[in-house]
Amino acid sequence: SRKDILLACPMNMHPQTDPDKTPQEIWEDFSLSFTPAVREVVQFAKHIPGFSSLSQNDQITLLKAGTFEVLMVRFASLFNVKEKTVTFISGTTYSLETLKNMGMGTLLETMFDFSEKLSALELSAEELSLFTAVVLVSTDRYGIQNVKSVEMLQDNLIKALRTLVSKNAPGDVSRFTKLLLRLPELRTLNNMHSEKLLSFRID
């Protein structure tokens, strides 16, 4: 049901839904829950060197397409692979079994898989920040007006990331490649997440 899907999102501050609330009200509560995180993504984007030089349309288009991916990276640590639990932003921790009963299936498993691979890379705060910037500018290009500018920005950020990653772990040449391989996984996760959202529209 609609309520089940809402309950299962880690960005939902109110997983215990009031049965008296209408779907519209539940949706509004959910929106209020994730709005601060989205605003943080926008603030983060503003600090990416070169991002603010893109046209307003292209900034918004990248953020629309990439916010989920950025949040997935940012909140990957909420997924405890060892304990098989997820901590929601409300602070409540749920077991994998409970989450599956809430309706989280393949998407949840893919999120766990991603989180495990990302944490295995043991990125420094600086690396994680730069990687997150790369994630945002590497998102779907649909609707971008000046693709060349976005590609230039992406190239610059990837070069900076490669330099940083190589400097931090000079003996591990595959580390950068392993990091870049997370990008298509994020795209897949984004698509899976979008499908969930589309099946859940409230007029």
Binding site: S31, R39, K46, Q56, I60, T67, H193, L197, L198
Partner: peptide, 27 residues
């Protein structure tokens, strides 16, 4: 429509956050 971001009202949140805090203060 078939835009998940619009479905969430994401564009509105992004646009306001991007344009600064003036609109947010007015809310």
């Amino acid at each position: 429509f078939s835009d998940p971001a619009s479905n969430l009202g994401l564009e509105d949140i992004i646009r306001k956050a991007l344009m600064g805090t003036v609109e947010e203060r007015q809310e």
